[in-house]
Amino acid sequence: TFYNFIMGFQNDNTPFGILAEHVSEDKAFPRLEERHQVIRAYVMSNYTDHQLIETTNRAISLYMANL
């Protein structure tokens, strides 16, 4: 899942690491979701930090390219 992918960046001092920290603390994050459209919609609806949203979009693109 995307959640498992992004958790691989925990403790990294990178934008993906920052995203992983936010996702791990977000109890409502769709952890079992595999459809990138649902993940993107969730982030757009629940996150207000523009940098975090952009990082999510980049992470989703990388995740999709590696499926």
Rank of each mutant, 00 (worst) to 15 (best):
Q51F: 15
M64V: 13
N57F: 14
N57T: 09
A59D: 01
I6M: 07
I6S: 01
V38E: 09
R40C: 12
F5A: 00
N13K: 12
S45C: 10
N57D: 12
G8F: 08
Y63P: 00
R35A: 08
E54Y: 07
I60F: 06
M64S: 07
D49C: 07
D12M: 13
Q10G: 06
Q10I: 15
H50Y: 12
P15E: 14
E54S: 08
L67F: 10
N11H: 13
F29K: 00
G17E: 03
F29D: 01
R35F: 05
N46E: 06
L67P: 08
E54R: 08
I6L: 14
N4A: 13
N13R: 10
N4I: 09
V23P: 06
E34Y: 15
F29H: 05
S61E: 15
L52H: 03
H36G: 14
Y63C: 04
D12G: 07
H22G: 02
V43K: 00
T48Y: 08
A20S: 05
S61V: 14
Q10S: 10
E54T: 08
A65H: 10
R31G: 03
I53V: 09
T1H: 05
V23W: 03
T14E: 03
A28V: 06
I53R: 09
G17V: 04
M44T: 10
I6E: 01
N13M: 08
D26G: 03
E34P: 10
R40A: 10
I39A: 01
V38W: 07
N57L: 15
Q51N: 13
F5P: 00
G17R: 07
T14N: 07
H50F: 12
K27T: 11
A59Y: 06
N13S: 09
E21G: 12
I39G: 00
Q10W: 13
Q37W: 15
H36Y: 13
S61R: 13
D49F: 08
P30G: 01
Y47I: 04
L52K: 02
I18P: 02
R35K: 11
F9E: 00
M44A: 10
L19R: 01
H50K: 13
R40Y: 12
R31N: 04
S24G: 09
A65P: 04
E54M: 10
F5Y: 07
V23E: 01
N66L: 15
M7S: 04
N13F: 06
T56M: 15
V23R: 01
K27L: 11
T14H: 06
T56C: 14
A28M: 14
R58V: 10
N13T: 08
G8Q: 15
T56S: 09
F9Q: 01
E54D: 10
L19K: 00
N57S: 09
E33G: 03
G8R: 11
I6G: 00
T48V: 10
V23C: 04
K27R: 11
M44E: 14
F16E: 02
L52T: 03
V23D: 04
A20N: 01
F16K: 01
R31F: 06
R31W: 06
I18H: 10
A41L: 11
N46V: 08
N57Q: 11
R35P: 04
T1S: 13
F2I: 05
